[in-house]
Design a protein around this nucleic acid. Structure first.
Lengths: 312, 312
DNA sequence: ACACCTTACGGAGCACGTAAGTATG
DNA sequence: CATACTTACGTGCTCCGTAAGGTGT
């Protein structure tokens, strides 16, 4: 709008944010899959456009000037806003062409909820479904499921923009390496394992979610010992299998993981608070197939046992 | 972040927003200063990236599909966020190089507040000042003064991110054409002119601000007759000079306008609620010269009469 | 017949990669 | 001397403008 405004390009914003996050041009360049001199040029161009030094160069890399800090914060917001616009358009694209994208974390929808999935696909044979592994929720639930139409999630954190429909409650099991001291047990109590070493999760995870699987709610506080920084179920399994930590998991995940990874056993933990498996989706999602999925889930619950499922 | 995301360019966002606002490719292209086929290509590219029709083409132009509507809203937000990042960097640029940009509407700072301006420039001879005519505030006060460091504004609307320092209160005058029925009067009362035809303002102006100058606060409601849609003082003067409407204005503007535009007279309106002239600037503005200006204003007020000015 | 949008094609600018140069600990 | 950033230069891509082709009122 304003005459003579420098009008930065999105490319510059992406590049600058990468550099700010990495603290080094060389590493940022490799993350961006471009040559390092190209990045150097792009940043120089950005600085000359504004007439400010955004980066302070020193031998070990670069750091942000005050101006750089301010611009960094705004640039991240701007990129998020652009991504949001992108995703809105893609969502409509799927809605218009009869496609629907499921999000999940760990095990795919047809394993987590076979009846629901089978019933839906049988009733909508023309619908083209696709899947995306979302790892674990970082930031809010709304941000997490932004790239998909609907997702399956254990014990979702409520969010004003997100609708939730609970499919079922599940008891929990302890996952431990076969070499672990607890591996021989056929059943455990929460009391017995509160002081065990648990597997840690990525720092960007919602603390309340991360703590749930480590029994923080039973203990009333954080674990005494945490090992690892898993960002998704696969990484966590690796830590568990190595024998240095344990975790809890939904009961339905036990057999699958136990058979998939030879070195891991699942031990029932009946007195832990159960976890709930839920469908989550954005309010005002334009995709009619999302409504179909939820309707399918509702009718399944009604036909199975009229009071077993509830909506929020 | 997400693999395989279409990553729209800022250029596409600008183009799409222009088309959506104009409702026509041809007009949008001329507004963007590009040829119309280039726009057609760019929009087509955007649509093929997403796989949705954003625009419905018909003979008289284009309209937005539901997907287009959703994307339009997000695209505007994204562009605003990018512009915000731009302006933050520019603000730091001025701060680092000893420059400061004044915003104003109508008459420049050295006319509105000569002492303040002269004292500041005398004390900071090395400071390079620049000016920008911001027309009248559209949207919030914060958005209005985004492109500048500090601005002079009559009766600013409060905003949580904006600091205000009141310089002085001013009585108001009526501006009318020399041919107007009221032109012969040497003084008027609010009562006498409540039912006059007033000059209208651009629809995007804050209603509370626009109404103030049409005496809505005295009348307790909107004018009975409004003519014109002025977006800035110059356009309003044109309407006034044409004789079909009147307006109120700060007393200090009367002599200037009266002498600048021969066909206009200013008539005192002593019983109207006074207007206040204030400095406004963003909280956390990084430019030290902004603090200098405010400090100068404070010390001037203190030396003139210890209780005449106040800060909020 | 007019107004608007689309397709076709050639040219200019720019962003990238490779290679050589500079500074700092 | 190793690491990290900068400058130099050639190339390919993309975006734009001109020109010609559609389509509905």
């Amino acid at each position: 709008m304003g005459p003579g405004s420098p009008v930065t390009s999105l490319r510059q914003l992406h590049y600058f944010v990468a550099v700010a996050e990495e603290g080094q041009l060389t590493r940022a360049a490799s993350r961006l899959h471009i040559a390092q001199p190209a990045l150097s040029q792009a940043i120089a161009q950005l600085e000359s456009q504004f007439g400010v030094e955004l980066l302070a160069r020193h031998a070990r890399g670069v750091s942000l000037t005050p101006a750089g800090e301010a611009f960094f914060a705004k640039a991240r917001d701007a990129l998020a806003a652009v991504a949001d616009a992108d995703l809105a358009a893609q969502s409509h694209s799927r809605a218009d062409s009869g496609r629907v994208e499921w999000g999940f974390s760990g095990l795919p929808p047809m394993v987590r909820a076979p009846e629901l999935f089978a019933t839906f696909t049988a009733a909508n044979p023309q619908a083209r479904v696709s899947f995306r592994d979302l790892s674990w929720p970082r930031g809010t639930t709304a941000a997490w499921l932004q790239p998909v139409d609907i997702a399956l999630l254990f014990s979702p954190t409520p969010h004003p923009d997100v609708e939730v429909y609970v499919l079922r409650a599940e008891s929990r099991v302890v996952l431990a390496a076969s070499t672990h001291a607890l591996a021989g047990r056929t059943e455990l109590t929460v009391e017995e394992i509160l002081d065990e070493t648990f597997c840690g999760t990525h720092s960007a995870l919602e603390p309340v979610r991360a703590g749930f699987w480590r029994l923080d709610d039973h203990r009333g506080g954080p674990c005494h010992a945490i090992v690892g920084e898993a960002a998704n179920p696969q990484e966590m399994l690796a830590v568990i299998a190595s024998g240095c930590a344990i975790t809890t998991a939904p009961a339905s995940a036990g057999p699958t993981f136990g058979s998939a990874v030879p070195g891991i056993t699942a031990i029932p933990l009946p007195d832990a608070t159960p976890t709930v498996l839920a469908l989550v989706w954005h309010k005002h999602n334009p995709n009619p197939l999302v409504d179909d999925i939820v309707a399918t889930a509702r009718s399944l619950a009604a036909s199975a046992s009229p009071t077993s499922a509830s909506a929020t």
